[in-house]
Structures are given as C-alpha cells and as structure tokens.
Computed example of a mutant assay.
Amino acid sequence: MVIASILRTKGNRVVALGPEETILSAARLLTENRIGAVLVRGPAGELLGILSERDIVRGMAAQGPGTTGLLVSQFMTRQLVTIRPETLVVEALGLMTERRVRHLPVLDAGGGLIGMVSIGDLVKARIEAAVQEAEELKHYVVSAG
C-alpha cells in the first residue's frame, strides 16, 4: 500500500499557519482541528517548517513562563522530513521511527505540497490491510474446503 491511497481516503486538507503567529494561536489551532502538528508556511505558501505539540512542549520547557506570546518561528522544526505519494506505508513508518517524527508532509515530484499523513493514519491503514487480508484468507480456506 502506498501513501497516495491513504490520501485518497483521508483527503489532502492540510492545516497551516504563518511563522509570525503566536504559540497560543498555534495551540488553539491544533486543539480546534484535533491534530498534533501544523505546517508553517511563508507568505507565498512555501513550506518553512512544522510545529508539533512536542515542539511546543520543548519550547515551553526551554523558555519558561510567558511562552504563549512567542512566535511560531521560534519553536518550529525547520528541517522537514517529507515523503512522496508513491512511498510505501511500511517505508513511511520506518522513516518516522528512524527520524522520531509523527507527521510527514507529502510532496509531489515538483516539491509541491499535496497532503500530510500522521502515524495514526499509517497505523490505521496497516490495520485495515491486515483485517482485509485475514478476511480474504478465511474466504479462501472456506471456499477451498
């Protein structure tokens, strides 16, 4: 199974904000959308980084009280780990484990953003595939017997 199949089911909506937004507005955006990370985009829509719940917690631990008014650009991760739509789900899971990330922006061949997947999306897809395979094997065994 490839990432493109997950995006077909999930959709390609990606939540983003600008680097000049505050950590408080970012936290509210994450909460309202019930997501764990948001992409950070520049004025022309270019990808500048990603801000995760983990980034916020680390930033708050380092900066102390009063961090909600600081800028997203101060907390975001600038080095994006990305994948392509033809990436296998198992490869993406391996990349997440290796790079210790939970969200992967999906880029087309030209580097354009076409979606984002989370660890939850990938685990869900693997479980659904395993259930389907088990059902097919069960049907095969029953019909062959």
Score class of each variant (00 low, 15 high):
G66I: 08
G18W: 02
L24S: 13
V15L: 14
A125Y: 02
R126E: 13
A62M: 09
L93R: 04
R28L: 15
S118P: 02
P43Y: 10
L122F: 02
M96S: 10
A109W: 10
V90Q: 12
L80R: 02
M76E: 01
F75T: 10
I56H: 00
E86R: 13
V38L: 12
R78T: 12
E133A: 14
R34S: 13
T67F: 15
V57F: 06
M116W: 06
L48G: 01
G66S: 08
S25A: 14
L122C: 04
N12E: 13
T31Y: 13
G42V: 03
T22P: 00
D55F: 08
Q63F: 15
L17T: 15
L137Y: 10
R41T: 13
I35V: 10
R58G: 08
E20G: 13
T82Q: 04
R100E: 14
L71Q: 12
G110P: 03
A62T: 08
D55C: 09
L107H: 06
L95D: 03
L47F: 02
I23Q: 01
G66D: 08
L93Q: 03
A16W: 10
L137T: 10
G11D: 08
G64P: 06
V81G: 00
I56D: 00
K124D: 04
L104F: 04
L70C: 06
N12L: 03
E21S: 15
V131N: 06
E53N: 05
V106T: 07
F75P: 06
V14F: 06
E21D: 14
G120P: 00
I56M: 07
L122H: 00
I83L: 07
L122P: 00
T67W: 15
P43R: 14
T22V: 02
R58S: 10
T67Q: 12
A44S: 14
L88R: 14
S73Y: 09
A129R: 08
V106I: 09
L95E: 11
A129H: 09
I23S: 01
E133S: 13
V131D: 09
R102Y: 02
A134Q: 12
V72R: 00
E136D: 11
N12H: 14
G49S: 05
S25Y: 07
A129Q: 11
Q79E: 15
G36A: 06
G49E: 03
L104S: 01
G111F: 03
L107C: 09
S25H: 13
L70T: 06
R41M: 11
L70V: 02
S118T: 14
G112H: 15
G11N: 07
I83N: 01
T82W: 01
H103A: 07
N12Q: 12
G110E: 12
G45P: 06
I56P: 00
D55S: 09
L51E: 00
D108R: 06
L107E: 07
G94D: 03
R78W: 08
E53M: 04
